[in-house]
């Protein structure tokens, strides 16, 4: 698989990992139904050990675990994978299905435009609102007297 394709795939997987099953289903409902798929691995919740680095940039250490749900489906000759934070099985199923369908050129553009782009826009807007809220709490120092 070429790098550009992997980057695209990483992008849609990242967006789907941050969207709830309900939100993905809501977006999919506006599109024609996807072809039938075979489950390869049913949605399953497990753990991923989250690692940090000593001092932020030193040797890795194990911080603690987080719940993650994964799923894999086959759609024609394409296999879709999902690993998403939390325990939303519907999210994992839909993310795996979309990962398979998005690899299919016949579906790619419709699904990007109908699902991934709008979800990404909503996520970016929420991130921006929070970052502007944080910026509003930034201290603007007023020196009473300049000393050194």
């Amino acid at each position: 698989m070429d790098t550009a394709h992997t980057e695209q795939r990483r992008h849609w997987m990242a967006v789907l990992a941050r969207a709830s099953g309900e939100d993905i289903a809501g977006r999919l409902a506006t599109l024609p139904p996807l072809p039938p798929h075979t489950p390869l691995r049913p949605a399953e919740t497990g753990l991923v050990m989250v690692r940090g680095r000593a001092g932020g940039d030193g040797a890795a250490f194990n911080l603690g675990e987080m719940t993650v749900t994964r799923c894999a489906v086959r759609l024609g000759e394409r296999v879709g994978h999902a690993y998403v934070a939390g325990r939303d099985k519907r999210q994992a199923e839909l993310a795996a299905l979309l990962d398979a369908a998005l690899q299919d050129p016949a579906w790619h553009d419709a699904l990007m435009g109908g699902v991934v782009v709008p979800l990404a826009a909503g996520q970016a807007a929420r991130r921006d609102a929070e970052a502007r809220r944080a910026a509003a709490t930034k201290v603007e120092f007023l020196a009473m007297q300049t000393t050194r």
Binding site: T38, P39, L40, R41, P42, E44, R74, E77, V79
Partner: peptide
């Protein structure tokens, strides 16, 4: 081609 594993993993 990848084939399924356990039908009911648990």
């Amino acid at each position: 081609m990848l084939t399924p594993g356990f039908a009911d993993p648990v």
